[in-house]
């Protein structure tokens, strides 16, 4: 029905403004073995509990965010900009 995600740039916004991509996974190095790429593209955890996902604030600031949340309780622990803490 409704729920609010606290965007670090825009404040609390309804989930309709966001698009979920899925788990936050570091992209393998260019010279990583194909098995690593295979796992990166196809293998996913499906945890009951804490999970970090990439969400796009597509209806707002259009930033990619890291949403850390609990899949069982729906509690949102933190929402940060995906570029934060990266080079």
């Amino acid at each position: 029905m409704a729920s609010l995600i606290p965007c670090p740039h825009c404040g609390p916004r309804p989930k309709e403004e966001f698009t979920v991509r899925g788990a936050v996974l570091p992209r393998p190095a260019a010279d990583a073995p194909v098995e690593e790429w295979q796992a990166h593209v196809y293998l996913r955890e499906n945890p009951r509990g804490d999970y970090a996902e990439h969400w796009h604030h597509s209806g707002g600031c259009r930033r990619w965010l890291v949403v850390k949340r609990n899949t069982a309780t729906h509690a949102v622990h933190s929402v940060t900009d995906a570029a934060e803490g990266r080079p």
Partner: peptide
Amino acid sequence: MTHLEFCAQALWPD
């Protein structure tokens, strides 16, 4: 557009 933004912001913010 969304794909480009992902690449620019999440993959290669440098």
